[in-house]
């Protein structure tokens, strides 16, 4: 990389590392990383404390984790969350991958408009998207009620539809990068050797962009697991999702049980990020 070359040809910058500013930069970095990771560490540690308030260390126990698995509300919310995340990941990955192919490979009128529409969900504040979808679902339910007399309520389906809408944009972004690095001559070679476009896609294109697709899917899954705002607005009564359940308990008090479920949520997302990074590195 050119930056490496810069570094080699600028000994003053290299020497700069030993100067006062170099030392203070390192110190600053250490403090920032502490700032970023200390709370996470504290949370993990205090999920093992005996203290019933979950804020003091009074000895090691695994009780809270056991209690967690016997808590039907939390377990039900976890199952709901995993279900919503799986379905929304599957749909958004398929739709997002198709869209990424269209955006990378075709020129068409209104392309810029589509581009804006894809990126907008990434930048619009979550709460705006949440209230918009809430208003929309209420309107649609009213219409259905007026037309057919059926009374519908917000449930896991409404949350899933909303999650697909915001996950898709992230999938498109990730898959597009992997399509951009793709050597299109491979497809031409396949076509020259007699493969039709269907065969070319499944035997050449798809295997080569698969790491990108899986990376996008893992990202969508993580986003869906972690989403709180849209879930809060769109899940109906009796269909609790894990972040919403945690939020309603946290507002009441700190408990070691919440520390335990939070620890599990953190570890799950960290595992997923590690996986997606490894896959994208391979690309």
């Amino acid at each position: 990389m050119s930056q490496t070359a810069n570094r080699v040809t600028t000994p003053a910058i290299e020497r700069g590392r030993l100067t006062w500013s170099g030392v203070s930069l390192s110190l600053h970095a250490v403090l920032i990383y502490l700032f970023l990771y200390l709370p996470i560490l504290v949370l993990i540690i205090f999920s093992f404390t005996r203290d019933a308030f979950g804020v003091r260390w009074t000895g090691f126990t695994l009780d809270w984790y056991v209690r967690l698995f016997n808590d039907e509300r939390l377990m039900g919310a976890s199952v709901n969350t995993l279900l919503v995340a799986s379905v929304s990941t599957l749909v958004s990955t398929i739709l997002g991958t198709l869209m990424a192919m269209a955006m990378e490979r075709y020129q068409f009128r209104g392309r810029e408009g589509v581009e804006a529409l894809i990126y907008l969900p990434v930048v619009v504040p979550e709460i705006v998207m949440a209230v918009a979808l809430l208003a929309f679902s209420a309107l649609v339910f009213d219409l259905i009620n007026a037309l057919t007399g059926q009374v519908l309520r917000r449930n896991l389906t409404t949350v899933t539809i909303a999650h697909i809408a915001f996950n898709m944009s992230f999938v498109v972004v990730v898959v597009r990068t992997s399509l951009r690095h793709f050597d299109r001559r491979l497809e031409e070679a396949a076509a020259d050797l007699g493969a039709d476009s269907w065969q070319t896609f499944w035997r050449v294109t798809f295997p080569l962009i698969l790491p990108g697709i899986i990376g996008g899917a893992l990202m969508a899954f993580t986003l869906s697991l972690d989403d709180f705002v849209i879930s809060l607005f769109l899940s109906g009564p009796g269909t609790s999702l894990l972040p919403v359940e945690v939020y309603s308990r946290v507002r009441r008090a700190i408990t070691p049980e919440i520390n335990a479920i939070s620890t599990l949520m953190l570890l799950l997302s960290i595992t997923l990020v590690l996986l997606s990074q490894l896959l994208q590195r391979r690309r």
Partner: peptide, 27 residues
């Protein structure tokens, strides 16, 4: 990567962690 990890982990949970640190009987 170490900067990226908190970026992808649950925001709510990470904010909650500060309650344990800052609470009146906290850390």
């Amino acid at each position: 990567f170490l900067v990226l990890i908190p970026f992808w982990t649950n925001f709510l949970v990470r904010i909650y962690a500060w309650q344990i640190i800052l609470a009146n009987n906290g850390l």
